[in-house]
Simulated assay, not measured.
Amino acid sequence: MDGASPELDFSLAKEADFGEVMSISGDIYGGIDYLPARYHAWLKQPSRKVILAKSKGRVVALVSTNIVDDGHTVVLEGLRVTPKERGKGIAGLIQRYCLDLIRNQFPEVKVRRYSRSGHFEPESLSKFRLICRQEILALHFNLEEVRPKLDAAIAQLKVSGTEWEDPILLQASDVKRVFLNPCVVDNVLPGRTIIQDWAPYKPLESNLETLLKRDLFWMADSKEEPKVLTLGTAPYRIPIEAECHRFNIDIFGKHFPHARNQFLAQLQHGTSALQGPLYCLLYLAPSLWQEMLSFCQSSLGLRKERDIEGQNVLETEV
């Protein structure tokens, strides 16, 4: 591919670029970046293109485009710029190149979506539509220390008789029926959107088929009339410290008791074979954030690890 700028050359990412890509990822999110665990899988996905920007032969930026929503939407993910080159407009250049590429190769794509952290002023949203916002609660703990507290918290809720209903681990045959239920789409999914690992998807059969191929834990409080649904990623290694894993839980719905129960069940199920340090990131409705933090502090002895600004799903025309 020819570069769109005399200073930058653009190309499709390759396996051999991994080392350089990781060198621009190291300080992202304070060492808990998902990119190291996603890069190789991204290169194998037929609907995705991972684009690199190089200056004088060295990687200075990366962004990924993924075609979703029956081919009508492009999702931009994983934007990274090497620390020394930030603030020079490179992020805008690589995104512009990717969008030109999409317009030329996929003329049926009409919408682009992003997930971005932070708080946006109204004037900064003039070019975008805000689809939804989720808050982020980041927890860091040692699994050997927390596991007895986790088991005890679940046991105590079960004894109460009214506070606990066993979350349902959905099988593949259940997922489409539950997530495509019109009441779920309208009343449970934030902005009528499924968000998985920062990527937004419309509740469509094709998107669910894609997500079902991934190693995810799908949970609900009911198959018929759910109030809360959760998606848990399989834990993956992150570079911040040796043997440290990251575990993400996307929580959809605003009913706190059921959200709390599924958080506990996801944590118990998803980390059963792990030991050592874990970063657990919860993505949840803003109305649940404080109550979930208070529960984690009082029942599990946890504290938030760091302040991470909320997750915003934005869209605009291509």
Rank of each mutant, 00 (worst) to 15 (best):
V60F: 11
V60D: 07
A61P: 12
L62I: 13
V63G: 09
T65K: 02
N66G: 08
V75C: 15
L76G: 11
G78L: 01
R80N: 01
T82Q: 11
G87W: 12
G89T: 09
I90Q: 06
I94H: 02
Q95T: 03
Q95Y: 02
R96Q: 12
Y97D: 06
Y97S: 04
L99R: 09
I102Y: 06
Q105E: 15
Q105R: 15
F106Q: 06
E108V: 09
V109R: 03
K110R: 10
K110E: 13
K110C: 06
K110I: 02
Y114E: 02
S117A: 15
E121A: 10
E121Y: 14
P122S: 10
P122L: 05
E123Y: 11
L125M: 05
F128T: 11
F128V: 12
R129A: 11
I136D: 02
L137N: 07
L137R: 03
H140S: 11
N142V: 04
E145D: 13
L150G: 03
A152K: 15
Q156R: 14
L157H: 03
L157Y: 03
V159C: 08
S160T: 13
S160H: 14
E163Q: 07
W164T: 06
E165P: 02
I168M: 12
L169M: 15
L170P: 04
S173M: 05
S173N: 09
L180F: 12
P182R: 10
C183T: 06
V184Q: 01
D186R: 13
D186P: 04
N187E: 14
L189P: 00
P190G: 01
G191Q: 00
G191L: 04
T193G: 06
I194V: 14
I194C: 02
P200L: 14
Y201R: 05
Y201D: 07
